[in-house]
Amino acid sequence: MLISQGFVKFHNIDPVLFSIGPVSIRWYGLMYLIGFIFAIQFANYRARRSDNDWTRNEVSDLLFPCFFGGVFGGRIGYVLFYNFDLFWKDPLHLFKVWMGGMSFHGGLVGVISVIFWYAKKNERSFFDVADFIAPLVPFGLGAGRIGNFINGELWGRVTHVPWAVIFPNAGPFFRHPSQLYEFVLEGIVLFLVLHYFVKKLPPPGLISGLFLAGYGILRFFVEYFREPDSHLGLLGGFISMGQVLSLPMVVSGVLVILCSYRFQRQ
């Protein structure tokens, strides 16, 4: 629960949902499970629509490799992007998953790699597969951000806004609940935007481009409220690693959108 004192709220949520003997079920893991279940159900719903040529078997054959590609890519990306010094000194740090650490941008590379593999294997175009996957992602992202908030991690920068939160591991400072900002923007807003355009029967590549550009812009914006990683700080004194990694997404997404509309007119 959140204990309120005046306008400031103290984060006091137990990250463990319940325990059975030595086994603990954590909210964070549950959030990702919910996100994955939603992706399966939503993908099957889209596959049943008459304007889609996907079957339930194809959905399961695609989603499970994408899930593992996202997990492995997320771990590799986190180590290389945010803890390369540790990896350089100890390459086995890559496998110390119990120490935590996942990167969305690394997970994205992992999923894109799976999409390339799947498209080639099943003789589909890359954007046919990518456009089908993209609308499934925001809900999982939003669920993950709720998990971050419950864990009291990836907190925001110091502030005095009325909804500020004091996180137990972030010192006695009032901070933005940036995890909830990301939940709203990356989870809800991005999902609604993509779903709106999906219903318009867009040209190939448009949904993928919107996802890349949309997430990149929203993440770049939220980073102004999110505390930079302590060991990295602001690169050059003004930009975070999350923003650096989001810029290529914005550029790539815009280019894909422009190409999508250009090919549609031809």
Rank of each mutant, 00 (worst) to 15 (best):
I3V: 15
K9Y: 10
H11S: 04
P15E: 07
V16Y: 12
I20T: 09
I20K: 04
S24T: 06
L30Y: 06
M31H: 07
I37P: 04
I37G: 08
F38I: 08
A39M: 05
Q41T: 05
Q41A: 10
S50G: 06
D53W: 02
W54F: 10
N57G: 14
N57P: 10
D61P: 02
C66G: 03
V71T: 02
F81N: 08
F81A: 10
D85G: 10
F87P: 02
L94H: 03
F95L: 14
M99D: 15
S103W: 01
H105T: 07
V109T: 09
I115T: 13
F116H: 12
W117A: 15
A119P: 02
K121I: 06
V129P: 02
A130D: 04
D131G: 06
F132Y: 03
I133L: 12
F139Y: 09
R145G: 04
F149P: 00
G152K: 02
P162I: 11
W163E: 09
A164E: 11
F167I: 08
F167Y: 14
P168D: 07
P168G: 08
N169A: 13
N169D: 13
A170T: 05
F173N: 04
F173Y: 13
F174A: 15
L180G: 09
Y181L: 10
Y181K: 08
V184H: 10
V189W: 11
L192E: 06
L194G: 06
H195V: 14
Y196M: 10
L201R: 10
L201I: 11
G205D: 11
L206P: 01
G209Y: 05
G214T: 01
Y215W: 14
G216P: 05
G216F: 02
F220I: 02
F220M: 04
F225Q: 10
F225R: 04
R226S: 06
P228R: 01
D229A: 11
S230V: 14
G237A: 09
F238G: 11
I239Y: 01
M241D: 02
G242Q: 03
Q243V: 11
S246K: 04
M249V: 00
S252R: 00
G253C: 13
V254W: 02
L255R: 12
L258Q: 11
L258P: 00
F263K: 15
Q264V: 09
Q264T: 04
